[in-house]
Design a protein around this nucleic acid. Structure first.
Lengths: 226, 226
DNA sequence: CGAATAGTGTCTATCAGACACTATGGC
DNA sequence: GCCATAGTGTCTGATAGACACTATTCG
C-alpha cells in the first residue's frame, strides 16, 4: 500500500470532412516535451472521475452540450509515467463537429488529427497513449453496432444521410443508403422525426430527426459488410 | 493534484449447483466491519493492475489455471472509502467450479453466494460494491452472447450440455438443447472436439470438447428468448 | 427536362426457433 | 424393452443485403 497519482485521459473523437479525427495536444513540458499526447490531467482531491474527465473535455474543446462521455479503461503499468506511479482512467468522448480546439494550460498546441493517419503508424504518441487510443477507437466502432451513439457525432437535428455518413467515417467503408435508411427508421425508438426537413444536399428534402429514447439497438447494425 | 490510494476489487463468478454464484468476503476490520464485500486489496508499489488482481484472486480462491480475468471499470467517487481518497479498479473473474473459498488475511470469512439472492435485495454489500457487482454480472451476461467465455466456467474438457448449463445459469432461463447444440458445434473454431466421450449423465455418451481458438462469435448466441 | 438525393418495394439466401425424429448408452 | 440424453433433419417466419423503382427538390 502506497500512494499513487491519478489522472484522466481523453480519447475525443469527432467527424471532420467525412473522416474520423481524434483530438491531440502537443506537450509543453517534460516528460515527452514536444510530443503529441491525448488530452488529460490530474484528478482533483474532491472530484469524481467522470467530473474530472468532463472538466478536461470542456477545457480542451470549449463544448459541453450534446457530448457523449463514457469510461473506457484504466491503465496503470508501474513505469508508464517517469514522474512516479500514476494510474490513468481513460474516457471516450464523442463530440459533434466543432471549430478549432482550444490550447489548454499544459499543452502548447492542440489539433484534430485523422485517425487513419495514426493507424497507418505515422505518429507515435507519448506515454502509453497509442494503446489507449486504439482501445478507444475500437470501442467506438463496436458501440455503433448496437447503440444509438452515432447521434452524438451529429448536430441536434440530423438527416438519415448525415447519420449514415457517421457510420461510414467510423467504420471506413460505404453502406447501402436504402438498406441503412430502412434499418434505422424501422427500429422504433431509435430516431424521432421532428416534422421538419432539410434541403442542404441538393436533392429531395430529407426528414430531420433527433435521437430517440432507445439505448440498445436490437438487432444491431452490422459493420462486417457494406 | 494529490495522492490517492489505489485498490483492486474482484467480481469472481462461478457456477455451483447450476446457479451463478459470486465470491464474497466478510470484513474483519473497520470500515464496514462484519459486512460482506467483494474480495480485493491495495495495489503494491511496483505491481501492474492486472497482476494485483491476479494475486488477489489466487489468495482468495487458490486457483490459477483456466481462469478468465478482465478489467471491468474503475470507481472513484470522493467519499466511497471513509479512510481516504481511494480509487478502485474492478476486475471480472470467471472460474471453474472449485472447492470452498479460502479465507484471506483481511477477511474473517469467505463464501460463494448465489447471485439471485443478491439481486433479490437480500443483502447489502460494503462500500459501493453493490454497484460493482451489478456491472460485473451484466458484463458476464452480455459477453456470453458473442464470446466463447462460457468455457471459462467449465473444466478443461466439457460436453455441449455442460456448456449449455453455463448459459442457462448465467442468463437464468432454459435454452433449447437441440438448437444450442447446432449453434455451437456449427460455429467453426468455437469448440474443438477431443475425440473422447463422457457418459456421466446417464444417456447416450456425449462428445467432449475443448475451447477453440475463436474469440468473437458471429453471429452471437442471443439471450433474449429461450 | 435532367441530375441528385430521399425513400419504398421486392426478391433471395440465411438463420433463429420450434419440434419430430434417430442414435446410443444404462437399467 | 424402457428411459434418458446426444445429436440430426425439417419447417416457418424474420431479416440482411442486393437492387429496381418511385418521390421531390434544384437548376
Amino acid at each position: 500500500m502506497r500512494e499513487f497519482f491519478v489522472t484522466v485521459d481523453l480519447v475525443v473523437l469527432t467527424i471532420r470532412e467525412s473522416r474520423l479525427h481524434v483530438l491531440l495536444v502537443e506537450r509543453r513540458y517534460p516528460p515527452f516535451e514536444g510530443e503529441w499526447a491525448l488530452p488529460g490531467g490530474y484528478v482533483l482531491p474532491e472530484e469524481d472521475l467522470t467530473t474530472a474527465a468532463y472538466r478536461e473535455l470542456v477545457e480542451e474543446t470549449a463544448i459541453g452540450t450534446g457530448v457523449h462521455l463514457e469510461q473506457l479503461a484504466t491503465y496503470g503499468a508501474p513505469e508508464r509515467d517517469p514522474r512516479g506511479r500514476t494510474v490513468t482512467v481513460a474516457f471516450l468522448a464523442l463530440v459533434p463537429q466543432v471549430g478549432a480546439p482550444v490550447a489548454g494550460t499544459d499543452a502548447s498546441d492542440a489539433a484534430w488529427v485523422p485517425v487513419a493517419d495514426l493507424e497507418a503508424g505515422e505518429m507515435r504518441l507519448a506515454f502509453d497513449h497509442d494503446d489507449i487510443l486504439a482501445d478507444g477507437i475500437e470501442r467506438a466502432r463496436a458501440k455503433l453496432e448496437y447503440s444509438p451513439l452515432a447521434a452524438a457525432f451529429c448536430p441536434p437535428e440530423f438527416t438519415v444521410a448525415q447519420l449514415r455518413g457517421i457510420y461510414e467515417a467510423v467504420w471506413g467503408h460505404p453502406l447501402d443508403p436504402r438498406n441503412f435508411h430502412r434499418k434505422v427508421t424501422g427500429s422504433a425508438g431509435f430516431l424521432e422525426p421532428t416534422g421538419r426537413t432539410s434541403t442542404v444536399d441538393g436533392g429531395r428534402p430529407a426528414q430531420l430527426y433527433t435521437r430517440g429514447a432507445l439505448d440498445t439497438l436490437s438487432p444491431p447494425i452490422t459493420r462486417a459488410s457494406g
